[in-house]
Design a protein around this nucleic acid. Structure first.
Length: 379
RNA sequence: GUGGGUAUAGCUCAGUUGGUUAGAGCGUCAGAUUGUGGAUCUGAAUGUCGCGGGUUCGAGUCCCGUUACCCACC
């Protein structure tokens, strides 16, 4: 299978007999990645508060970078000059870069959508910028990501049928341009399925992208404020239309329960700000949800953040100490919490992969849902 | 000992010539957070207004006494 190690490949290792869940391996220019995988978000060429060594110790295999943010600051030329994203940030593992479509629609103001791309004002200093499919591919080539994403239009929620239909049309046009654009030989390219909550648009968009031919396919346009039910329906409707031999990537998701529901539908890749952002906001994840570390009940608690956890923070520090650091605004508090949350997510994914490989995924998911349902205040 | 000042939520303090159910910030508690703005938002709980008496239709507010603390003086 691994005849040409510098070329992106996806290999399916095992399938769950009772669902669409599967275990696989992505072969990238910077090494293999076991799936289902969770990729922490490193928007601005850093997973906030973490060194690459700390990411590795937490079990992180692959991370995200962001075209939009790195284009605004410091610029793709600078990153390219400093060794590409890998050299620039000192991370030698695989990197996936988001195309910037999402940020153009979530951050930029006064944007103007044309068929060639999107003109918008920088959220940092207001200057006029433009990103279209060619620009997105050029930036991602310079960044040197292992996996690049096609430029897409991410509509808001809710959005009516006509709006979603237009977003699909434009996404397909832009994806076609991306597919033909020059890029490094070792760089994979994924297309992004849009279509809002309309199953027929999802099917149509997926079919169009498959015809164009991509290394993998992403489910986009979710985690934009829709109810969980709508999210899961979109995942089910889209995943079923995607070629089983290619990796499926659910963008921006999410909570552990949502991840399991998506794995069940055959999704292989995930990313979300949840573990890192909630860490900075003072929440610790556990196998049954998350809790506020700053709460006064933990003032004198000598237990680790999560009993039985093997992360650096839990092996060395008490809940009371980390709470203290957070309360006085010390940087270390956020760092330790981020280390723990990432470790927690990585362990969760490891357990999910094992469950799929051993053919007991449904049971694993049922146990998780039950634990979550009965979670009280005891962690 | 004398004179002056202060006392209101866990903390720091507002509180109008006496007038509805005494407020704010912080803290506490709960929630939100999804292809990252270390951001932000929402909601809740908490009062013997130091204590005792008086004046008044009505006192956190005015008067008397008292206690604690602070400052100055002796």
């Amino acid at each position: 299978m691994n005849s040409s190690p510098h070329r992106f490949q996806f290999e399916i290792l095992s399938r769950d007999p009772e669902s669409h869940a599967r275990c696989g391996r992505l072969w990238t220019a910077h090494g293999p990645v076991d799936t289902p995988v969770f990729m922490p978000v490193g928007t601005q060429a850093t997973v906030k508060a973490m060194t690459p060594a700390e990411l590795q110790e937490a079990g992180v295999a692959m991370i995200l970078g962001n075209t939009y943010h790195l284009h605004v600051r410091p610029g793709a030329e600078t990153v390219e000059h400093c060794g590409g994203l890998h050299g620039f940030m000192g991370w030698s593992g695989p990197i996936l870069t988001d195309s910037g479509g999402f940020q153009v629609f979530s951050l930029a103001r006064l944007r103007k959508i044309r068929d060639e791309g999107v003109e918008f004002n920088s959220h940092v200093d207001g200057r006029r910028l433009f990103i279209g499919p060619r620009e997105a591919m050029d930036i991602q080539s310079r960044l040197g990501a292992d996996v690049a994403m096609a430029f897409d239009e991410c509509p808001p929620y809710p959005c009516d049928y006509e709006y979603a239909c237009n977003a699909v049309r434009r996404t397909l046009q832009w994806s076609a341009v991306c597919a033909k654009a020059p890029r490094p030989a070792a760089q994979a390219l994924f297309g992004i399925v849009q279509g809002g909550r309309y199953a027929d648009l999802r099917r149509q968009c997926a079919a169009g992208l498959v015809e164009q031919g991509f290394d993998g396919y992403a489910i986009g346009g979710v985690s934009v404020g829709e109810p969980q039910e709508v999210l899961l329906e979109a995942v089910a409707a889209t995943s079923a239309c995607l070629p089983p031999e290619r990796p499926r990537y659910l963008m921006g998701v999410g909570m552990m329960g949502q991840i399991l529901a998506a794995i069940e539908q055959g999704v292989d890749m995930f990313d979300c700000v949840m573990p890192t952002r909630l860490a900075r906001h003072g929440s610790a994840f556990t196998g049954r949800g998350h809790y506020a570390v700053r709460n006064a009940v933990w003032r004198s608690d000598r237990r680790p953040l999560e009993e039985g956890c093997g992360c650096y923070a839990c092996r060395n520090f008490s809940r009371a100490y980390i709470r203290h650091l957070l309360n006085v605004g010390e940087i270390l508090g956020v760092r330790l919490l981020t280390i723990h949350n990432l470790f927690c997510y990585m362990e969760f994914m490891r357990a999910a992969r094992a469950a799929v490989a051993e053919g007991r995924f449904r049971q694993f998911k049922a146990e998780f849902d039950r634990r979550l349902a009965e979670a009280g205040t005891v962690y």
